[in-house]
């Protein structure tokens, strides 16, 4: 009988442990098995990506529609090429959409915001967004401001 209660409590313990793992996976890390890897890729070139990193979110009107999967330097254009994965249900981005690098809050993470255009055609997987706006770099801003002051 003592052995039995022991076995039951051990079984219970193992169960809680695995449940905890599941909670961590789904609730804390927001792991969504369905959307991972099922999306399509689009690209954009930026002159300066600032502090953008892989896994940064891609959003439209503040709603996340994908994430940055890879960042590399395009050797011909000498610009940053950002690869984004867009969720499969977002299949209505117009071909003349523009992408800009934004910052959440004053000191927060950088992310990509997509602003829809008016074109009837939609972005196909693998296509580029040509209309881009680089990240704001504080030093550049200060530099421009000072130049203006001097020229006045």
């Amino acid at each position: 009988m003592r052995m039995r209660t022991m076995e039951i409590s051990v079984g219970f313990f193992m169960l809680i442990g695995f449940l905890a793992l599941v909670v961590l996976a789904l609730n804390v890390s927001g792991l969504n098995l369905a959307s991972k890897g099922a999306g399509y890729k689009i690209y954009a070139n930026f002159e300066n990506i600032g502090g953008l990193t892989a896994r940064a979110k891609v959003s439209m009107s503040g709603v996340q529609i994908g994430e940055v999967t890879r960042i590399r330097l395009d050797p011909q254009m000498l610009m940053a090429e950002v690869e984004m994965e867009i969720y499969p249900d977002i299949d209505f981005l117009s071909a003349d959409s523009s992408a800009m690098i934004l910052t959440s809050g004053l000191l927060g993470q950088q992310y990509i915001g997509i602003i829809p255009g008016g074109d009837v055609e939609v972005l196909a997987p693998g296509e580029f967004i040509y209309n881009t706006q680089s990240a704001l770099v504080l030093e550049d801003l200060v530099g421009k401001f000072l130049m203006n002051q001097v020229s006045e």
Binding site: L21, L24, N27, V28, S29, G30, L31, K57, Q64
Partner: peptide, 19 residues
């Protein structure tokens, strides 16, 4: 609270590494 958490915690690089 939860969405911020879910967006920043990655399963592979955070949870699995902790494990």
């Amino acid at each position: 609270y939860w969405v911020n958490m879910q967006q920043s915690v990655d399963f592979m690089s955070d949870v699995v590494n902790g494990l």
